[in-house]
Design a protein around this nucleic acid. Structure first.
Lengths: 204, 204
DNA sequence: CCTACCGATCGGTAGG
DNA sequence: CCTACCGATCGGTAGG
């Protein structure tokens, strides 16, 4: 399970180091999110980085390297933010609230990475695509754990789908510069999910 | 507001007529859904239709014509299926149930068109993109009407986001050949949304 | 709908 | 990271 195919010029620790490679990954994530993987050219990416397209290949081996690395790191963020909650001894409904907060916060922090993780990953092929699918399955399994403690078993499947839908769709509408904080969004969703929205019945 | 830029060779009534153009739209929808608009070539489309790429242009003026026409027709389906419910005098929660059924049924009938409508539309540019955005806004406004009758005003905004998330995310996981009927999915979601999923509390 | 193409652009490389 | 490319493929067209 090769961790990455990026050129081993230097062993950079993480996304936040802001070396040249990290900068290129950030630029690529924005463009892939905006125009899609196939709608983005290596010249677009190089141009935004202030270099010529050929020079990109001093840092990467292929365009797909960039997509893979963005997706893999985003998956790590989503997964580890949920795993961090497992150790805390909270009641199930509180764990649901914290999990939704964690998810929306990851989306809010880097919407472009979230979008690439949740959609553009389909442009990956072969082994890398299969690996990303496993990461996605793992993330969904973590949600299954959380929901299994909240909802009776026969409903847990639909509950998981419902919660994941709400969580995953956020990247299509949430704007970090908008009026809603990630926490506010997550808490409203949690309240509506736990209590239900049927509070006006009989009036129609 | 030009309705279409397709060549006016013949005035075909609708999608179900299965003339040559409709067949090409169906093929294009499947490929766009599968590989994305930019990931699909006109040679892919022509190949699946059993002709050469140049021959496509006897039916269309550009590749974008195909995308636009698929998206426009899909939008019509989603919108009219919700508008059809407005005339019926149902209680609000029942209208929510019927609306979710209608949405999931449209997704289930043609998942590839739903996917193109809900995602690949972003590949459209200029006027066509703006027009599709208006169609999407209109669809969301119809949901706003429905939710406004179910939920108290301050929560209606989040309720609409929650329901639309559940509805719109279905195309990513729903499989027509799977064990779940559209109605079953919609009804489970409706029950969970109306009643809430917090039924195990205190056990964790 | 085919034959036969076109200019533009694509991802990527060699050699500095 | 640049100069200078490469072969392949792209969306699309002219003329039948």
């Amino acid at each position: 399970m090769a961790r990455t195919d990026l050129k081993p010029i230097s062993k950079r620790p993480g996304y936040q180091a802001y070396g040249r490679l990290d900068q290129m990954l950030q630029i690529a994530a924005e463009l892939f999110s905006d125009r899609g993987y196939h709608g983005t050219t290596v010249r677009d990416i190089a141009g935004k980085a202030g270099i010529l397209s050929g020079s990109l290949y001093a840092h990467i081996r292929s365009k797909e390297d960039l997509l893979y690395e963005i997706v893999r790191r985003a998956a790590d963020q989503f997964i580890s933010s949920l795993e961090a909650l497992r150790t805390r001894p909270n009641p199930p409904s509180e764990r649901l609230r914290l999990a939704l907060r964690a998810h929306v916060e990851v989306v809010a922090e880097h919407p472009e990475r979230a979008r690439v993780f949740l959609h553009e990953w389909t442009a990956l092929r072969g082994k890398r695509r299969a690996e990303v699918r496993r990461l996605r399955d793992r993330y969904e399994a973590l949600w299954g754990e959380i929901l299994g403690d909240v909802v009776p078993t026969p409903d847990a499947k639909y509950a998981r789908l419902l919660v994941l839908s709400a969580a995953n769709w956020t990247y299509t509408w949430y704007r970090p510069d908008g009026p809603l904080s990630p926490e506010e969004v997550a808490d409203r969703f949690t309240d509506l999910l736990l209590d239900g929205l049927g509070t006006k019945e009989g009036s129609g």
